[in-house]
Amino acid sequence: MIYFTFDPRPDLKNDLLSSIREEKFEFTRQVDVELLKQAEILVTYGEDLTVEHLPFMNDLKWIFVASAGIEKMPLKELKEKGIAVSNVRGIHKTPMAESVLAHILTAYRSLKTIYKEEEQKNWNKKVPSKELFGSTAIILGPGAIGGEIGRLLQAFHVKTIGCNRSGKKADFMDDMISFDGLLNALPEADIVISVLPSTEETKNLITAEHFKAMKNDAMFMNFGRGSLVATDVLIEALENGEVGSIVCDVFEEEPLPAHSALWNFEQMTVSPHVSSHSSRYLERSFDIFKRNMKIYKNGDLANLENLVNLEAGY
């Protein structure tokens, strides 16, 4: 039995039922332990599973996570039970890359100011704007999402520097550095973009020292996970003028509390974790699920698309 802990919209549900006729499906809006006991395959967004659910996973062999983030799941315990976990890594690249580019162009072409002037019916031609052409961007996490961001930026003649753990070559990156080389590369960057996942290695990877190394007019963007940088570090960088602007789609605490000082800075843009949102999100997720169902039926769990390394956490 295939058990969904969420109920997709009717057209997508009907497509699944017609595409995989030989399987029994169950759909709920929260985890039902009685259904969990019977499930061989579980489809979830990943945030509703806890250690307490593990004893009810009697027959479970595969968990398909309709999200890229799995950090809230009991990964260690799932590995011990021998349950395969796969996700939809890569489907976010189009909406997230478009979101990142939109924020960059908004800042470079002063769209916030233009919109404010428009509201006041002011014909103000003294709006400062600059070009992306010839600038340099460091992209932390040059995988599927980071690579798509790099591809779009290169179309604007931006030099792209990818940054990952190994420093090994990645698509659409003009140069590569490792995490150890980041501090030395930051003075060259006009834009610093992170799309890194949340792992032990990336937690608090960006420190006050990194902001001090950036250009005073640089743009810092975090679209990966809020654990990358402490909120106090962001506030300090803004207060000290160590960075030109910050755009965050993710935060240490979500929703960002109304009392947070981050709301008060003109050079801070708070995006409420929406950069990956798209009307095509589940459509793309279910395309991966259907492909993986064919692999699963062949008994080839080790070759599932986007199989998660439960030890590494991604």
Rank of each mutant, 00 (worst) to 15 (best):
P8S: 04
P8V: 11
K13E: 11
N14R: 14
S18K: 14
I20Q: 13
K24H: 11
K24C: 04
F25I: 10
E26C: 09
T28E: 11
R29C: 10
R29P: 01
Q30H: 08
V33F: 00
E34I: 03
L35E: 14
L36Y: 02
T50H: 14
M57P: 00
I70D: 09
E71Q: 10
K72D: 10
L75Y: 10
L75A: 04
L78H: 12
I83F: 09
V85K: 02
R89M: 10
G90H: 08
K93C: 05
M96A: 07
L101E: 06
H103C: 13
I104W: 00
A107E: 15
R109C: 04
S110A: 14
K112L: 15
Y115A: 12
Y115K: 10
E117F: 14
E119R: 15
W123S: 08
N124H: 13
K126F: 09
E131I: 00
E131V: 09
G134M: 07
T136D: 02
A137P: 07
I138V: 15
L140S: 01
G143C: 06
I145K: 00
I149C: 07
L152S: 06
R165M: 07
S166E: 08
G167T: 09
K168H: 15
K168F: 13
D175W: 14
I177S: 02
F179Q: 01
F179V: 05
F179E: 00
F179C: 07
L183P: 03
A185P: 01
L186S: 04
P187C: 05
I193S: 02
P197K: 07
P197F: 13
P197A: 12
E200K: 05
E200G: 06
I206H: 09
E209P: 12
F211H: 09
N216K: 15
D217W: 06
D217I: 05
D217Q: 08
F223T: 01
L228Q: 00
A230K: 09
I235C: 00
L238E: 06
N240S: 11
E242G: 03
E252G: 04
E252F: 06
E253S: 13
H259V: 08
L262I: 01
W263Q: 05
W263T: 11
M268E: 14
S275G: 12
H277A: 14
S279I: 13
R280L: 13
S285W: 02
S285P: 01
I288E: 00
R291V: 05
M293D: 01
Y296I: 03
D300M: 02
D300L: 09
L304C: 15
E305G: 00
E305W: 07
N309K: 05
L310V: 05
